[in-house]
Simulated scan of single mutants.
Amino acid sequence: MPELPEVETTRRGIEPHTRGKKVKALLVRNPSLRWPIPPELAELITGKTLRSVTRRGKYLLFEFTLGHVLVHLGMSGSLRVISTQEPPGLHDHVDLQFSDGIGLRYTDPRRFGCWLWAEGDVLAHKLLAALGPEPLSDDFTADYLYQRSRGKKQNLKTFIMDSHVVVGVGNIYANEALFMAKLRPRRAAGSLTLAKARVLVEHIKAVLAKAIEQGGTTLKDFVGGDGKPGYFQQKLLVYGRGGLPCRVCHTPLKEVRVSNRATVYCANCQC
C-alpha cells in the first residue's frame, strides 16, 4: 500500500498543478469507499479555490476556505494529474476538475481509501488527532522514542510501525531502518537504549528522506501524482530479499512474519 514517501511524492506531484485553482466540478462515479463519500461534498467545493495541498501522516489535506477534504489512498489508490477530457477507466472513482481543464483523478481498485470533509481545525479530526509526530520533523527525536518505548514488551518493528508512536513508518521502511540500525525486528521495544534509539531515529529519517527523494517505492499499485512509478525499490537492502545474501556480510537474509507482515533481516548484522 502507499506509505508516507509515496503519499508525499503524490502531494509534491499534484500541488503545483492544483494550488490556487478554482474547482469546476467534483465527479463521483462510485461513492462506496472505506467510508461513503459525503453526498454534499461536490456542492461544498464546486466554485471554490483550492488553497493548498498538505499532508498529515498518510492523509492528503486539500484546503479550502471553509474546510478541508481529507484524502487517503487506502491499499491500492493513486491520484494523478489528467486532462479533464481523458476518459475514465474501470477503477477511476473520483475526478476533481478545475476551471482550466486540468483535473485530479482518483483510482482505487480495492476502494479502501477515503474522501471526507472536515471543518474547523483539521488536525483535531478524529482520524488525525491521535497520530504521532511526523518522522522527518524536529518532534521525532531519540529522547521521544526512548521514552515511548519504556516498558513496552511488543516487538520493535511493530512499535515503530504504530502510527500513534510515529506516523508513516510502513512495513518496507521499518525493515530497511532496522537493518541500517543493526536492530532485530523481534527484539522488545523496551530493550531500546537511548544510544540505540538515537541510531534508529537517524536511520528512520534517512530511509524515508531517501525514498521521498527517489519518488517512493515501486510496488504493483503505486504511481506518483505525475503518473510515473517510484524508483526506490532498486535501493532496498532487505525488504523483498529473503534468502538472498546480505549486502553487507553476505549471510543469507532470513524472512519471517512479524505481526503478520513480511519481515526480512540479517541474523549476523542485526542483534
Rank of each mutant, 00 (worst) to 15 (best):
E134W: 06
A211H: 06
H93A: 08
F179Y: 10
Y106W: 04
G67E: 01
A25G: 07
G242T: 10
F222T: 03
T218N: 13
R257N: 12
G132N: 03
C246S: 12
P252S: 06
H203Q: 15
R247K: 08
G168T: 06
L237K: 04
C114Q: 14
R150G: 02
D92Q: 01
T18G: 00
G13Y: 09
V238A: 02
L128S: 00
S149Y: 02
V223K: 12
S99E: 13
L61Y: 08
K205I: 11
A129G: 00
D143T: 15
E6L: 10
R261V: 06
G13C: 05
N260P: 02
K182D: 11
I37K: 02
G120T: 02
S78F: 00
G242C: 06
P36Q: 07
N175A: 05
T141Q: 03
G57S: 09
L26C: 01
W35M: 09
H72F: 10
G57L: 10
D226Q: 13
L50I: 09
A129H: 03
A209F: 14
K153F: 13
G132L: 08
K22L: 04
A209T: 09
K24S: 06
V7D: 08
N155S: 09
F98Y: 08
G240V: 14
E3A: 07
P87V: 10
D100T: 08
V71T: 07
C246H: 13
E213Q: 14
R12G: 14
C266T: 00
L123I: 05
W35V: 14
S259R: 05
N175D: 15
L183P: 07
P16W: 13
S99I: 14
V28S: 07
G77M: 12
F64I: 12
C246L: 10
S99D: 15
T10K: 11
N175K: 05
E40I: 06
R110G: 08
L127M: 05
G225L: 09
A262H: 05
N30R: 03
A130N: 15
F112T: 07
I212C: 09
K152F: 04
R56S: 13
L178G: 04
I212N: 01
T217P: 08
P133Y: 01
P88K: 06
C249N: 08
T158G: 15
D121K: 04
P245S: 10
V71D: 09
H125I: 00
N268H: 15
L237N: 00
R247W: 01
R55L: 14
E119S: 02
L192Y: 08
A129P: 00
Y239D: 11
T218R: 15
E213L: 12
P185I: 04
K210V: 02
I160L: 04
K196I: 07
Q85R: 04
S137G: 12
A206G: 00
G230V: 13
L244Y: 08
G47Y: 09
K254C: 11
V207L: 00
F159I: 04
P5S: 02
R34L: 01
K22V: 07
A211I: 05
L41N: 12
H250Q: 15
D100Y: 03
H93W: 13
G20Y: 00
D100V: 03
R51K: 14
Q214P: 08
H164D: 13
Y59N: 15
L128M: 03
